[in-house]
């Protein structure tokens, strides 16, 4: 299965003093960060450090309140963020699906929305071990199974930038191993990956970025 679209040249992420503010509160207080294509970066930091906000900014899900940034060739301040969102694969730490649709229907919806063949759905479900749950409504899946479904959603699309918010949350050992394998595979295929994590991971990142107080501190 092909995991990524064409690999970009130059840095995939280039942020300079990026600020994201909500209701007067700066979630990100000036992040400067550059990430090369085909790398796996792990974001670390205490609760409220800005890990999720940074991932959301990179995914075009939050507007830039200050500073500059270019992600996957899209200018965050003036560019078309919808274009950026199409290039991004997102796995949030909340449930990410239509709860009343089955696992398979959720993936089919994503595939059709992206103009990908429906044939990509079956293998993706198999890869994350959810074939037996294909016809189960997303709301009936356990937290760990939902997380696996989130990863399957990534596999269905050809995103050049994967953003994962706490990919290990609620996963059993087997699930962690699986996600680790998939991420390493994707990186080898040229995908740029940014994942936030609290705990130790089953794979090595190319780089660890420490966040605190809405900034990169190491």
């Amino acid at each position: 299965m092909s995991l990524a679209g064409p690999a970009p040249t130059g840095p995939v992420v280039a942020l300079e003093g990026a600020v994201v503010a909500h209701g007067g509160f700066p979630l990100l207080a000036g992040v400067t960060l550059e990430l090369a294509p085909g790398t796996l970066t792990i974001l670390r930091g205490p609760n409220g450090a800005g890990k999720t906000s940074l991932l959301r900014l990179l995914g075009g899900l939050e507007p830039l309140s200050g500073g500059r940034g270019v992600v996957a060739g899209v200018d965050l301040a003036h560019g078309d963020r919808r274009l950026l969102r199409r290039k991004v694969g997102w796995v949030g730490h909340e449930g990410s699906f239509y709860d009343d649709l089955t696992a398979e229907e959720n993936l089919r919806f994503a595939a059709r929305a992206l103009g990908r063949p429906g044939a990509a759905v079956g293998p993706a479900l198999a890869r994350v071990g959810l074939t037996a749950r294909a016809a189960t409504a997303a709301r009936r899946l356990s937290a760990g199974q939902r997380r696996r479904l989130g990863v399957a959603w990534l596999l269905v699309r050809r995103a050049e930038l994967w953003l994962l918010d706490e990919p290990y949350a609620a996963l059993d050992d087997e699930g962690r191993e699986l996600v680790g394998e998939l991420l390493v595979e994707a990186r080898a295929a040229g995908v740029t990956i940014v994942a936030s994590a609290h705990e130790a991971l089953a794979f090595d990142g190319d780089r660890e970025v420490r966040l605190a107080g809405g900034r990169v501190v190491g």
Binding site: G59, G89, E94, S96, A110, A113, G150, A159
Partner: peptide, 17 residues
Amino acid sequence: SLERAAGTRASVATLGL
């Protein structure tokens, strides 16, 4: 409300419909 859950909104947004 179908798209109101924060996670759903985010993942559907990344479909760029």
